[in-house]
Design a protein around this nucleic acid. Structure first.
Lengths: 229, 229
DNA sequence: ACAAATTTAGACAGTCTTGTCTAATTCGTC
DNA sequence: GACGAATTAGACAAGACTGTCTAAATTTGT
């Protein structure tokens, strides 16, 4: 009779720690070398475990890769939702608050280690694993974009912005805020904090020139809708 | 004494045709499989030549890869400059003309076979070949961005746009115009023409809301009415 | 049609990698 | 300290790939 009332299942504690270490190192090596170029011995060395342990935990290279992507997706999603929770619903200074949000989104989700890794793995190996990346698409963009769009819709409803389509606005917001970082992203580099702030500032300013209330035109139906609201 | 006054150098004609065929197939295979996963035999089969011919032409796998990137960069640059030449300097209908330009840019340079391949190779193997991709950066973005920015500056000077920084505006233009295609790009897919037009249309409209001259002035009574709403 | 250059198919050695196996060792718990 | 589970190091077979070599076949220019 074995009764471990530990966390959830039978494996002891160091077990899970090793699993994490393996997945972390595997993510780095898969990113650096690509799936075909990734060497199990190298992953083992980088994780500080023996090769056999990797096979004990994950079976084979392909299953290890799947586990890596699942883990990264999960952690990135958590980070994105945590950041979305800081969206300024009742901004005091709309420009400053949106810039802050944009910088947080970039630093915590897009330039983070996990974010960079997941993005690169999807771009690199996405076509080879259609079902895995369909899953990512549902769990990732499929859930985060609507959440962000909803926040912009709320801001519009609150009278802070003049937006017709919140989904389009959300995507354009990210496009603007990252506009000056694209070349850096291309080569896998991380922009400096100054660059992130600069790009976010310029992006938000343009965004508000287009959708801010004071300066822009608003379709008639929205005016009446707002007037009656 | 050998005097071939043919095109430029000594090799016959079929020679260059094979070289092209090899580089083309190699580009496709390197993209699909990554550098490490790319198989010389597969490239040879796809190009319709024998493996030995590849070694005769390019020496080894790494040199072949470099040749592929050089070729792609050159062809993409040519395409981009050809497209930039169609930038509307004296637009009749600013919105329609900018949308047209954006669609051309997307279809000819970004969604084209060469564009997709080059982008993926840079993202995938960029970090492994710093000097090669420094060269790309100089020849590519380093030359095309200023050219595009110069066109926007001219448009501003001509009174069509209210832009402070043409470089920022150029990058934001591309960010906006591609905002809705990012997820598709992630997985290496090509958006349909409808999607490209849609994204370009929404992007240009937002761009003009921010930087267009005509619409930024609104009758005073509407502004105050909106401001108080 | 001839001669030179190029291309081809196939064999080949050498290297690397994956995944399995075994026996010894370490770790966590009682 | 002792027990069982997990981990380790290393050997190992099987397969894949690169890059070279050779001899035959084909193409090219004249």
């Amino acid at each position: 009779m074995k009764l471990h009332v530990s966390p959830d299942t039978f494996p002891p504690r160091g077990h899970e720690a090793k699993r994490l270490s393996i997945v972390d190192s595997a993510a780095a090596v898969f990113c650096r070398e690509g799936f075909a170029g990734a060497n199990i011995d190298l992953i083992a060395a980088e994780a500080g475990v023996s090769r056999q342990t990797i096979y004990n935990h994950h079976g084979d290279k392909e299953k290890l890769f799947v586990a890596v992507v699942r883990d990264l997706t999960e952690r990135c999603n958590a980070g994105i939702f945590a950041t979305i929770a800081t969206f300024p619903d009742r901004p005091k200074d709309l420009e400053a608050d949106l810039i802050g949000f944009a910088v947080r989104l970039n630093q915590n989700c897009i330039c983070s280690r996990d974010g960079k890794f997941l993005r690169k793995l999807i771009q690199t190996e996405g076509e080879r694993y259609p079902e895995l990346f369909a899953e990512w698409r549902e769990q990732g963009p499929g859930r985060t974009w609507p959440a962000i769009a909803a926040r912009f819709a709320r801001l519009a409803y609150g009278g802070y912005l003049a937006i017709e389509d919140p989904d389009v606005a959300a995507r354009q917001f990210l496009g603007l805020v990252n506009a000056e970082l694209q070349t850096t992203f291309m080569l896998g580099g991380s922009p400096s904090e100054d660059e992130v702030v600069q790009s976010a500032t310029n992006g938000v300013r343009t965004f508000l020139r287009a959708f801010g209330k004071r300066r822009s035109t608003i379709p008639v139906e929205k005016q009446t809708a707002l007037a009656s609201a």
